[in-house]
Computed example of a mutant assay.
Amino acid sequence: MKAGLDMPNILLTRVDNRLIHGQVGVTWTKTLGANLIVVADDETSSNEMMQSLMQVTAKSSGAETRFFTLEKTIKIIDKAAPRQKIFIVVKTPHSARVLVEGGVPIKELNIGNMHFSDGKRALNKKVYVDDQDVEDFKILIENGVNVYIQDLPGDVKEQVSHLI
């Protein structure tokens, strides 16, 4: 990864099970001033139905959308133009970890919704984790990523390091 001015302009990366929905596609995108939402998710990258539903939401904020696999995101993120103000959305902490370990310069990781499922425990009312999620958070934090829970832009940030 090149340093300095050639770095991609990543405004924020968010973990959200739902990927692009009203909160992400409108509220977060407008607050950040993002003009490109990159959904880095292997499953969604090949599901045109999911993509078209997400694009409808994103269009209302005026942002463009791209749907890439994790590997493709790693390979092309450094080719982003300086005018692109990028908001990356992933489904899981593990996806964020893969991106960071692949060289994507993520400095902040916002944790939005991580739904309850068997084997998961609550970090707060909207974020449920299992042992793999906790391990991924620890590695991200060790790599210098500021990992925090923040549902909406005006909400107080809860540092994940204090919760795990």
Rank of each mutant, 00 (worst) to 15 (best):
V129F: 03
E64Q: 08
P82E: 15
F137M: 07
N124H: 06
I88A: 03
T69I: 01
T29S: 06
V90I: 05
V38K: 00
P8R: 15
L11W: 10
G154L: 15
G154I: 14
M54C: 13
L36F: 09
M114A: 07
I10Q: 12
H94P: 00
V156P: 04
D41R: 00
N110R: 10
T31I: 14
G33Q: 14
K59C: 08
Y128L: 00
F87R: 01
K72L: 07
G4E: 11
S52H: 06
V134M: 05
V100C: 09
R97F: 04
E64F: 05
G154W: 14
H94Y: 11
G22S: 14
K138Q: 12
I141C: 01
H162K: 14
V134Q: 00
K138L: 10
N47H: 00
R121Y: 10
G144T: 08
I77Y: 11
P105M: 04
T27N: 14
I164N: 05
N35K: 03
R14M: 09
M114Q: 10
K75N: 06
F67M: 02
Q132W: 06
N113T: 10
D151L: 11
N146D: 10
Q84T: 13
F137V: 02
L109G: 09
M50T: 00
A96S: 10
N143K: 15
R121P: 01
G154R: 15
G154H: 15
S61H: 08
K125F: 09
N143G: 04
R83W: 14
V127H: 04
D133W: 05
M50W: 01
H21P: 01
D133V: 08
S95H: 12
K79Y: 10
M114N: 07
P82I: 13
S161E: 12
I74S: 02
V147G: 00
V145W: 06
L53M: 14
T13F: 08
G4D: 13
Q84E: 15
T27Q: 15
G102P: 08
L123C: 02
T31Q: 14
I88V: 07
K157P: 05
T73H: 04
Y148I: 05
A122F: 06
I37C: 01
Q51E: 00
L109F: 12
A122Q: 06
T29V: 10
Y128N: 01
I86E: 07
V56C: 11
D131C: 03
G25C: 08
T92L: 08
H94V: 06
P82A: 13
V129G: 00
V100W: 02
L36S: 03
T65D: 03
L12I: 13
E48L: 13
G25K: 07
V134G: 01
D78M: 12
I77S: 06
I139V: 08
Y128F: 11
D41L: 09
